[in-house]
Nucleic acid binder design. Structure first.
Lengths: 341, 341
DNA sequence: ATGAAAGCGCTAACAG
DNA sequence: CTGTTAGCGCTTTCAT
């Protein structure tokens, strides 16, 4: 440890230590322009020696460029979002862009705050979950002048571009599959959150398609907070005691579905002979269960990849006036709990 | 939409629109210093009207202050880390500090890159998982001159301050509890990752304590990648077929433990009469299982809270020369799979 | 291949 | 209570 001055080092320090002008030091550190190998060497050595860490704040202000991408999602505890996030990172890692994550807890006001905060760092682009947001948020996004990719949902009007699936269609599709298997007494379980628009749309699509076939949801139950697996178990018990005639349970996510499945198996129910089950999301966890829950893949990794790719292309001016909505098509996996015949 | 100039707005624009000097506009927008209600009003209106978003880059450069806290963790798919993260956020939300997350994938080189990248934005502090890191990373942290809180582990020497549990002690403690219940033929399952130092330390503490009592791990198995629940199931089957005499299985995390538990129950094993089980972490998920897996709480939320609090206090100069290592004490929860008597 | 000068958009410090 | 001046640490641009 040399004299602990505690003032962060600047380019000037490296310049002085190496006897090279600040400008040239800057060029070396950014690999820009031609610099002789000798000078280059000297600079690199001095920088490493001193332990110089460039000040991106100053750099960004001067260059008017920030290699940050704001990624705004509702939650980190849903597993679904870390997964899109990791797909996004995978693509961005091949560029010089860096994701910066903001979490909204499904609250529009918090989304607004987070967005404001992030935009004030002048990121190069925004990837943000969902299509529903406050007017103020929408205005900020538009005014930012940077590419905005809305993800996970395509049922609505994007500010700029959108990549996702139609949850309404997903709900309908599952309803069709269930009816086709001859199930008729259908129960639904899901989160209470009125702000989870994608879950809401799935439910709407689901009931809509049932209605078209003269079927109504026979019983339903909503939860909030707590361990989803435990909630699925409890809700299922409650519902089966209340409505023993049910022959199918549709869960708005796999976690509660898994809880329900475990409980029903424990109780010795014949699945899917006596009662069928389905969830949503295609989470990895299901593969460890004694029986495979029917579910629907939400294309999370595809969505993350595609969104990041569109953003990168936009920033490279490769995708100026392209398509605006990219809809992926989720597939049902029947597992062991949906197919009767 | 007015004339889309596309140049981001500056303080000057607000100044001109409101007829107030830039300096005063700045004061209003930051709630600093006295400004007459009238002026204040005018400025706020103009800013909102224009949709002005302050440029934090310029602000940070000028004020030499950045309200960002770098939070560096190995992974987002472990559930454990989002949980500490949320505890950290909980505390920081009551201040003007903002967490910024970086993920290392358990790779020291990536940690180094991420750290460098984050430090180059001159955050106010760093919260970083683990105590093991490259010399370069350690040097950067020291040179940064900002508070550094290392979390999750206390078996080692912190750069600055540390908050966590002793995983070595945790391993020993579990070994003791298992032996006390009379189990003797013990199998171990865990991740292959040599870079998960905390898992390694638990294992070391575990075998150490067994050895002290003349017991050796009878069989062991390591995995990597894939669904932990499924892996736990497979590994357990493999191991029980290979070593049918085992009477206890210690899992390095709850997820694989849960997989094993489900498989054993399915196969009709008497738990814990014939075979006992324990995991580690105290994950919420366990509450949804048909039987409660014995586990040990890793104090994740406490650690997150405490780390953030220390950081905040340091930045407020409230905690200059205080304690350096804060060790939490995890507790065993016996659940239904460890207590025989 | 290298250097000098002029800002980037904001805020600290000081005047009034 | 409000305004003026001088940078923050870098990069852009233009010389050399």
């Amino acid at each position: 440890m040399t004299s602990e001055n505690n003032r962060p080092l600047t380019l000037r320090d490296v310049s002085e230590a190496s006897g090279v002008s600040e400008m040239t030091v800057s060029r070396v550190l950014r690999n820009r322009g031609d610099v002789s190998a000798a000078t280059r060497q000297k600079v690199l050595e001095a920088a490493k020696q001193l332990g110089y860490v460039p000040n991106k704040i100053a750099g960004a202000l001067a260059s008017q460029r920030v290699n940050l991408v704001a990624v705004i999602i509702p939650s980190l505890s849903n597993m679904v979002f870390p997964e899109v996030l990791s797909a996004i990172s995978g693509v961005l890692e091949q560029t010089d862009l860096q994701p910066v994550v903001g979490v909204t807890d499904y609250l529009p006001e918090k989304e607004e705050r987070v967005l404001f905060e992030m935009l004030s760092w002048r990121p190069s682009g925004v990837i943000i979950a969902g299509l529903e947001r406050s007017e103020a948020s929408r205005a900020m996004l538009k005014a930012s002048g940077i590419p905005v990719i809305e993800i996970m949902d395509t049922d609505g009007t994007p500010v700029d571009a959108a990549v996702g699936i139609s949850h309404r269609r997903a709900g309908r599709q599952m309803a069709k599959a269930i009816l086709k298997q001859g199930f008729e007494n259908i129960g639904f379980m899901g989160t209470k959150m009125p702000l989870d628009h994608r879950a809401r749309k799935r439910f709407e699509g689901f009931t809509e398609e049932l209605a078209r076939n003269g079927v109504e949801v026979m019983d339903q139950e909503f939860y909030s907070g707590g361990s989803a697996l435990a909630k699925g178990r409890e809700m299922t018990r409650t519902m089966m005691e209340r409505s023993p005639d049910l022959d199918f349970l549709y869960y708005s996510n796999d976690m509660i579905g898994a809880g329900g499945l475990l409980w029903l198996m424990e109780q010795g129910w014949d699945i899917p002979g006596r009662i069928g089950l389905a969830g949503f999301n295609g989470v990895e966890l299901l593969q460890g269960l004694p029986r495979q829950l029917a579910t629907m893949d939400a294309c999370r990794r595809d969505i993350g990849r595609k969104a990041a790719q569109i953003l990168v292309d936009r920033l490279d001016d490769k995708d100026e006036g392209g398509q605006r909505i990219f809809e992926m098509t989720p597939k049902i996996s029947f597992g062991d709990t949906l197919k009767r015949y």
